[in-house]
Simulated assay, not measured.
Amino acid sequence: MRLSKNDINNFPRFCFTSGDYFVVDSLCFFSGSNVEVLVNELNSEFAAWYFFNNVAVLDNGGFQMRQQYVENIPLPKLTKGVTKKTVDEKIYEAFGFSSKEIDFIREAIKHKQQEVLNIIK
C-alpha cells in the first residue's frame, strides 16, 4: 500500500464490494455476515493508529501491509448499524478509552502522518 501527500488522510483503505470478482494473490479479502461493520472498524482512527504503529513503513512512504497485521488487530465486537461516522465513537466506547487516551491516539496519527510525509518528500 503506497501513500502520497494527497492521500495521507485516507489510510487505512479497506472497502466493501459485492459481486463476483477474481483477485490476484497479493489481495486479501473477507467474507461473512458483518463485513461492512468490519470494513468500518478497519478504516477507523483506532485502526490507523494500530497500523501506523505495527506495519513497516517503507523508505518511499509505502506500507508493507500484510495479512498478519489485519488478523492481529484487537477490535471490539461491534454490531450492525455501525457507520463510518459512528465507528470511532463506538470503538472508543467499547474499549472504555478516556478522552486523554482518545486525544493521544489522534495526536499519534497526526505525528505518524507527518513522519510518512517527510519520507515521501
Rank of each mutant, 00 (worst) to 15 (best):
M1A: 15
P74F: 13
E101P: 01
K77L: 11
D25A: 09
E107S: 12
E36F: 15
L27T: 11
K84H: 04
A108R: 00
L42P: 03
N60G: 15
N6L: 07
F51E: 00
V24Y: 03
A56N: 09
F22E: 10
F95K: 11
C15Y: 10
L117K: 08
L3P: 01
K121Y: 10
S44G: 08
L117N: 04
S98H: 10
A48G: 11
K90E: 02
K121Q: 15
T79D: 03
L78I: 06
E89D: 12
K121N: 12
C28F: 14
D7K: 13
I73Y: 01
F16W: 12
F52G: 06
S98E: 03
K77D: 10
L75T: 12
M1F: 08
Q113W: 02
N72P: 06
V70I: 11
N43I: 12
Y92M: 04
Y50W: 01
V55A: 02
F30S: 14
I8E: 03
D103T: 15
N34Y: 06
C15W: 13
N9R: 01
K90I: 09
D7H: 12
K77F: 06
N6T: 15
I102L: 01
G62D: 03
V87N: 03
G19L: 05
D88F: 03
S31T: 14
R2C: 06
L117Q: 06
I120A: 07
L58G: 13
E107D: 02
P74H: 09
E89Y: 05
N60F: 13
F11M: 07
N72T: 15
V87R: 00
F104D: 12
I91P: 00
R2H: 10
A94H: 07
I73H: 04
K121P: 08
L3N: 00
V70S: 12
V87E: 00
Y21C: 15
I119Q: 02
T17A: 13
Q114G: 14
E115L: 14
I119N: 02
P74A: 14
N54K: 13
R13M: 10
S99I: 03
P76G: 07
F11K: 06
F29I: 13
V37T: 05
F14L: 06
K80W: 00
W49P: 03
G62Y: 03
N40W: 00
S31W: 04
